[in-house]
Amino acid sequence: MAGPAAMTAHLTLTPETIRPLLAALESLNNEAEARRVALLHESGLVLAETGEDAHQDHGESGALAAGTFFAACHLARRLGEESFSGLHYQGASRDFLLTAAGPEALLLVVFDQRTRPAIVRACVGKYLPALEAATARLRSAPTQPAAPPASWLPTGPVFRETSPATTDLAAVFHT
């Protein structure tokens, strides 16, 4: 999706750049009567989200959503579908719609029986241009962060190991 130039610059969210993103996400969430709407970078990072279940995890959903999107994209291509743009998962109580939102972003909409997939799709189509435009502004030069002072760099370990008593690798993995 993203080209070489886009791969090198940092993505910067400021109050000015995040405002139009959140406004579009909130409008989409309200009009579609969705539960949660999230804009993700293709790497799985959550750029912005809104809705009743927003901020319920620490990025796990974003990572899985990006993985799901690209796995489905590759499967579609292998099956001869060249213009894959998204997928809809229909669950017993929750559905989600995943769609591309510009060259390097993805849109995740979680919804339930309060609305219908066709309504969600129509609302996504309505707000995608605004979301794509707002996402493109995250890369524009004026929003790139200034260099923090050298004192910003930590001098000690970034992470510290806790006591050995908590170690049970098998339990960690199988729970």
């Binding site: 610059a9 940092h10 910067t12 969210l13 109050p15 970078h41 790497s43």
Partner: peptide, 8 residues
Amino acid sequence: MALVNHQT
């Protein structure tokens, strides 16, 4: 590519 969020 870092994500810098000045708001949060």
